[in-house]
């Protein structure tokens, strides 16, 4: 599953640490999600999408291999 968190962060000008702090996870978690090494839970995906003010499927997108 790919995501646009890095782009959304750049638009809103916030760091990984700030995003992590706002959704109550570690910076390593955000880094792993951005690098597509970890697929977040529904709750975390919803928190991130709410923070960016966009629907979940705008930020997270399924790939053919999923």
């Amino acid at each position: 599953m790919k995501n646009t968190i890095r782009i959304e962060r750049a638009i809103q000008n916030i760091t990984q640490a700030e995003l992590a702090d706002k959704v109550n996870v570690s910076r390593q978690t955000i880094n792993a999600i951005e690098a597509a090494k970890y697929v977040p839970s529904t709750v975390l995906a919803l928190k991130i999408s709410r923070l960016f003010g966009k629907p979940v499927n705008h930020i997270f997108e399924l790939e053919d291999t999923d």
Binding site: A20, N24, V25, S26, Q28, T29, A32, I33, Y38, P40, S41, L44
Partner: peptide, 11 residues
């Protein structure tokens, strides 16, 4: 517990 105990840490 870790400082921030989230789902990734648990995984």
């Amino acid at each position: 517990r870790q400082k921030v105990e989230d789902e990734y840490v648990q995984s």
